[in-house]
Amino acid sequence: MQRFLDLCQDVALLWQNYWPGYLNGVKNTLILALIGTVIGCVIGLVCGILNTIPYSKSDPAPKRFLLKLIRIVVRVYVEVFRGTPMILQAVFIYYGLPYFTYNAVQWPSVWAASILVVSINTGAYMAESVRGGIISIDPGQTEGAKAIGMTHFQTMTSVILPQALRNIMPQIGNNFIINVKDSSVMFIITFTEFFAFHRYITGINMMYFPSATVEMIGYLTMTLIASFILRWVEKRMDGSDSYELVQADQLTMAAGTYTHPDKGTPFDERSKEHRERVRQELKYGRPKGDR
């Protein structure tokens, strides 16, 4: 019990003295994770779309060759960046650029390098998620779109991607939360995110456990808020469960003409159609499809 009180005291002490440093770390972590996830999603989206362009044997040879090449390139990209640790990718890219250019080209800032690493790492994961999202949509949707004359591009942007994106929203959220946590490995290239500040401060005052407690609470708070927001966004995307019946004559309203109240519409209680319908309903019961 005593130890817990000590811990609380130490945590309070740390926070009191160094909160600007911790908060700065939180800020950098969030910015990096957000930008990395967004760019990663765009990369993944592009890869996933390119990967699912259909081709058949009757297509001209150059088109088939190009599409095959794209698929191979995307495949290699995905396998390489999904199959190696992000911490190594960071080192590899950060020190690789000066190495290959004999120090002529340096990274303009550690920010640029970090964002690049997180983005292409996320992109590799998202490419597969997007591909999965696209192929999970019922082929009937594509056929319906084709049957009214839509091109592949129109089908994708109007019909398939809106549905696929909804389905991969949980994956995007997943990646964001992973990025919040895993961007901590960027300390290796001296990026000052949340965890890097822990390393810095413990190097000075050796309060490893209290500082780690602050970090744990900090990360958990960030990820909890993130998942809460994501749930909310998903709910918004799903739209309302109910809908309004339109009881007026839409055509005449759209045309701006005036309907005399005595004339009525088929949905009007005084109209002949309505009376007939009511009579039928009383006789045979309400048709099931009607509501």
Binding site: Q141, G144, A147, G149, V159
Partner: peptide, 30 residues
């Protein structure tokens, strides 16, 4: 095939309405 398909409509056994759109949008998008 796209130009031709606008002249020859098709109605499917499984409806194939676009799930992400309302009834009105389904009839407008094409």
């Amino acid at each position: 095939p796209c130009a031709y398909r606008t002249k020859v409509g098709m109605v499917f056994q499984s409806f194939n309405l676009f799930n992400n759109m309302t009834v009105l949008q389904n009839c407008m998008v094409g």
